[in-house]
Computed example of a mutant assay.
Amino acid sequence: MRRLRGTVGELHARRPGVDVHRQVWLMSPIDTALVLGSAQEPNLAVGDPGDDAGVVRRRSGGGAVLVVPYDSVWIDVVISRDDPLWDEDMNRAPLWLGRVWVAALASLGVSGGEVSDCYRPGRWGRVACFAGRGPGEVLVNGAKAVGVSQSRTRVAARFQTLVYRRWAPGELLARLAVPPPQSEDLREALSIAAQPVDAPPDEIRTAFLTALRQ
């Protein structure tokens, strides 16, 4: 387990080493940034990736995520290709991680979590992560409680997970260059997209680490 502190861009830029083994990275960002998925166009954001507007691109796929210190909890898990948890199928690969998060949330009093088993972006999932559904992500009463994305190298897989303690769809929407009337449709979709987890960040991290060890 490693605690990593830095800007959102610096944390996303970290890479597993060639001698990687199973690791948990507890991310502590020091800034707020809109994070675009690997396939998203830069002009989706108000600002450009890497500039002072706080826009970052990650290597994993999916829609945009707004990372806000303290309001979100970001935990990554890295496994090597020879790890028993490795799965070549990109849909099956993160399902075990979703089950860990279901147990962690239950210990925090958030029950009824279900693990999404495939990619269902719907109308807006390719724009905003929490508006769609992906494999390994955890849903509570139809709303996303845990977002999951994944990227791979020749030797390792990196699973990135995010939980919102406070869901502020207006702040996300303000950073996306989506013109009206589409922006109003997206606003409505985002208003019911997420299930915040009302617990202190360290309690969420501890719950996850405990569930992972079980």
Rank of each mutant, 00 (worst) to 15 (best):
R175I: 04
S80Q: 00
V73R: 07
I30F: 03
V67G: 03
D48S: 14
P29M: 12
L172R: 05
S191K: 08
S107C: 11
V197G: 03
A193T: 10
D202V: 15
A13C: 07
P42T: 05
A143N: 00
V73H: 02
A45C: 11
D117H: 09
G62I: 15
P49N: 01
L85R: 07
G170R: 06
A145W: 06
V100N: 03
V68R: 13
L212R: 02
R92H: 08
D48H: 14
D89P: 09
V155F: 12
V24Y: 01
S151D: 00
T206C: 02
G122C: 01
V163Q: 00
D198F: 03
R57T: 13
S149P: 00
V140I: 13
R120W: 07
E114A: 06
G47T: 01
D51L: 10
V197P: 05
A189P: 11
G47C: 14
A194Q: 07
S116M: 09
W25S: 00
A211C: 10
S72W: 13
S38I: 15
W96T: 00
D83E: 12
L85Y: 07
A168C: 14
A207L: 03
V146Q: 01
P169I: 11
L34S: 04
S80K: 05
T210C: 11
V140Y: 06
S191L: 12
W25D: 05
A45F: 10
P201M: 02
W167T: 04
R205W: 04
D87T: 11
A93Q: 13
V155Y: 08
A104H: 05
S191F: 03
K144D: 11
R14Q: 13
G112R: 01
L139Q: 09
V8K: 05
D87G: 05
Y70S: 10
T153I: 09
V20P: 07
P121C: 12
L172K: 08
E137S: 05
D83C: 04
D51C: 14
R187C: 06
W124M: 09
A53I: 09
V127N: 10
R175L: 03
D52A: 14
A156N: 02
I192D: 11
R154H: 12
V46H: 14
V65P: 08
R175N: 05
G62W: 14
V18L: 13
M27Y: 02
H12C: 11
R126S: 11
V65S: 09
P42F: 02
E88Y: 13
A33R: 05
R175Y: 04
